[in-house]
Computed example of a mutant assay.
Amino acid sequence: MTSNFGLDRPQGSRIVVAMSGGVDSSVTAALAVATGAEVVGVTLQLYDHGEAVKRTGSCCAGQDIYDAKQVADRLGIAHYVLDYESRFREGVIDRFADEYARGRTPIPCALCNQGVKFTDLIHFARELGADCLATGHYVRRVVNGDRVELHKGSDPKRDQSYFLYGTTTDQLGFLRFPLGDLPKSEVRRIAAENGLIVAGKPDSQDICFVPNGDYASLVKRLRPETEAPGDIVDLDGRILGRHRGVVHFTIGQRRGIEIGGSPAPLYVVRIEPEQGRIVVGPRSALAIDRIRVEELSWIGEGQSEVSVKVRSLAPAVPALIDGGWVRFDRPEYGVAPGQAAVFYDGTRLLGGGWIADTVAADPRLTCAAAA
């Protein structure tokens, strides 16, 4: 259980560790302590929706802050809790709700990493005179000559590179990810070996600020217009039924379309929030030829031939980049505006951006997403 965290002389160095209260960040702290460097744990309090105080397996609230403190005490390191609730609400939660109100499918984890979790935490760590900031993400930081690269985690089931596409080159020089080569079983073994109370703590399965995974209730409270009922129509605009609010639907969804008598399964093809309509069609209508990507961010050299992931759990597929447009080698299914398109060269993360518009493989079905 040794790592120098990419530091020439760990002893005499200072490592700040982002501690969410979960097993991954706790083991990151334990690995940092093992180097002999001075280690400081930092936990961000990002939200508190009442019952979230009692939740475990999330991060950045209530019980999880307490767990992070207990781990820090066990390891004998200083521990700070920073109240970033207002910044998180404005930069992540409000935008999450706004995206659903626009008929898009947001990805809050990427927003959080681009904002408070990296930008603000790195600033704080540098103010403390730290040599690096370490996190529990399953990605690999690779030094290739005079270049620092970010690669997928060794375990494809744990890889979190998709959510880190907005990391900048300057940030990568300061960040460390010691878990990138480890399987989860080894992480839990290290936690148990160090007597950490989180060794058996379950992994989070939900968006951290959404109690019990009920994102619709949160969005409806913040943006009540998203629960207005409306029509479900086919590709030709014929009314097939009614829905109980656009907040309940995402592109590619099949469940929850309450229409009887359809000879074939129907999927959500388009969401039109201004008209309050959900457009449905056969799976073939989900085939997308190309997408327009905005707010492009590059951590590696920009290149035209890439592999691209359009969902966190989707495989990377070959594509060609031309300006802000990305054309797939073969049609891709279930591509949702609001998600991220993330570019790779093999295992190396190159960058990405937000999916703004989609162009269907069948030109008769093309409709730009709400901008």
Rank of each mutant, 00 (worst) to 15 (best):
N194I: 00
N194P: 02
N194C: 07
N194L: 03
N194R: 10
G195V: 13
G195I: 11
G195F: 11
G195M: 10
L196C: 06
L196Y: 08
I197P: 00
I197F: 00
I197E: 10
I197G: 12
V198H: 06
V198F: 07
V198P: 00
A199T: 01
A199N: 01
A199L: 03
G200K: 12
G200E: 14
K201V: 06
K201T: 10
K201C: 07
K201Q: 14
K201H: 09
K201A: 12
K201M: 11
K201F: 10
P202R: 09
P202Y: 07
P202Q: 09
D203C: 03
S204M: 13
S204C: 15
S204K: 12
S204D: 14
S204V: 10
Q205V: 15
Q205D: 08
Q205H: 10
D206R: 10
D206M: 14
D206C: 09
D206L: 12
I207S: 04
I207C: 11
I207F: 03
I207Y: 03
C208M: 15
C208V: 10
F209H: 09
F209T: 11
F209W: 10
F209E: 07
F209A: 11
F209Q: 07
V210D: 01
V210Y: 07
P211R: 14
P211F: 13
P211M: 11
N212A: 13
N212Y: 14
N212F: 11
N212V: 00
N212D: 15
N212S: 13
G213F: 13
G213R: 12
G213V: 13
G213K: 13
G213T: 14
G213C: 13
D214W: 02
D214Y: 05
D214P: 02
Y215E: 04
Y215A: 10
Y215V: 09
A216K: 09
A216E: 11
A216H: 10
A216D: 07
A216S: 12
A216V: 15
A216M: 11
A216P: 00
S217K: 14
S217M: 09
L218Q: 01
L218S: 08
L218P: 08
L218W: 07
L218M: 13
V219L: 10
V219D: 04
K220Q: 02
K220A: 00
K220E: 04
R221T: 04
R221K: 12
R221H: 05
R221S: 05
R221A: 05
R221E: 03
R221D: 03
L222R: 08
L222P: 03
L222V: 03
L222E: 02
L222W: 00
L222C: 02
R223Y: 04
P224F: 04
P224E: 03
P224Q: 06
P224I: 06
P224H: 05
E225F: 01
E225P: 02
E225R: 04
E225C: 01
T226R: 02
T226W: 01
T226Y: 01
T226L: 03
E227D: 08
E227F: 01
E227S: 09
E227W: 02
A228V: 13
A228P: 00
A228H: 08
